[in-house]
């Protein structure tokens, strides 16, 4: 089940998107997400879907993989959309029962919530699939840098983020092993009522927690033994390279922006 989820995963590759600077990708993703929220006409949605489709093609990964990966999240999206559908007043009322109603505004809102969610999740998935966790951490560090002025511990935060991301696969492996060990002792994780399922989680969570703490402890010891004192005075091995492709990407987005403005005026 966990294995199917694609959001947050990284697939090493050599596509144009893979090679873009992580700062460029983070900035552009943020920017596109804002645009999605500002989107209000159908033409723009169509345009955004074509854009996202193009981005997927650029990743070099199969479309089916994206669709299956979003599968586990689709119910969350549908649920949100249905709430909008049944509780939004306004416009023409088609049907009405107690607090529930079906209105023309409701339908429009539900559809656009559904589309927005879908677009945002797909874009976030594209970002993590094509950007190594390390690069994301570096990109975040670069973007946080201005906060140094207010004495925000940017370097430590970035290292923490990078170590945390680095341990995600290890902890997922560990969770799988513990789950298997408890299944072998007769626990059924996917069976029974809610209470039974909740109780089955305890023998998973406690060992996972104990394990994570002892791992963190060992890691802290190893870091200390290698001279890590936190704070300043550290040099950096990895530097980010802004290349012409990154500038191109930013320019493309600006062009997209102009197109969108034009669309707005068409309406």
């Amino acid at each position: 089940m966990l294995e199917q989820l694609t959001l947050g995963r990284y697939v090493p590759g050599q596509s144009i998107l893979h090679r873009l600077d992580s700062r460029a990708k983070l900035l552009l993703s943020l920017y596109l997400i804002v645009i999605v929220f500002l989107t209000s006409n159908w033409l723009t949605y169509v345009f955004m879907f074509i854009l996202v489709g193009g981005l997927i093609a650029m990743t070099g990964l199969k479309v089916g993989y994206f669709i299956r990966g979003i599968g586990p999240l689709i119910w969350l999206i549908v649920f949100t959309a249905v709430l909008q559908l049944l509780f939004t007043p306004g416009g023409h009322v088609y049907w009405h029962w107690g607090v529930l109603m079906l209105t023309s505004t409701g339908i429009a809102t539900a559809v656009s919530v559904f589309l927005r969610f879908l677009l945002i999740i797909t874009m976030a998935t594209i970002l993590t699939l094509t950007t190594a966790p390390l690069a994301i951490a570096d990109g975040v560090e670069a973007m946080l840098k201005p906060l140094r002025i207010v004495h925000f511990p940017v370097a430590q935060t970035a290292l923490m983020l990078s170590v945390a991301l680095r341990f995600v696969p290890t902890l997922l492996d560990e969770a799988t092993t513990i789950m298997n060990a408890q299944r072998a002792r007769g626990v059924e994780f996917n069976n029974g009522g809610l209470i039974k399922r909740l109780r089955a989680i305890v023998p998973l969570l406690i060992p996972l927690f104990v394990g994570a703490i002892s791992r963190a402890d060992e890691l802290a010891t190893a870091m200390e033994a290698r001279g890590y004192q936190g704070g300043d005075g550290r040099t950096k091995y990895r530097v980010l390279h802004w290349r012409s492709a990154d500038t191109m990407a930013v320019i493309s987005v600006l062009i997209i922006n102009i197109v969108l403005v034009v669309f707005r005026h068409l309406n």
Binding site: A132, L134, R166, R226, R234, K236, Y237
Partner: peptide
């Protein structure tokens, strides 16, 4: 500690 082999080897040097 590092996210890749080279980053890990560099960790002590960075410190």
């Amino acid at each position: 500690v590092g996210a890749t082999v080279a980053d890990d080897v560099a960790f002590g040097l960075e410190n």
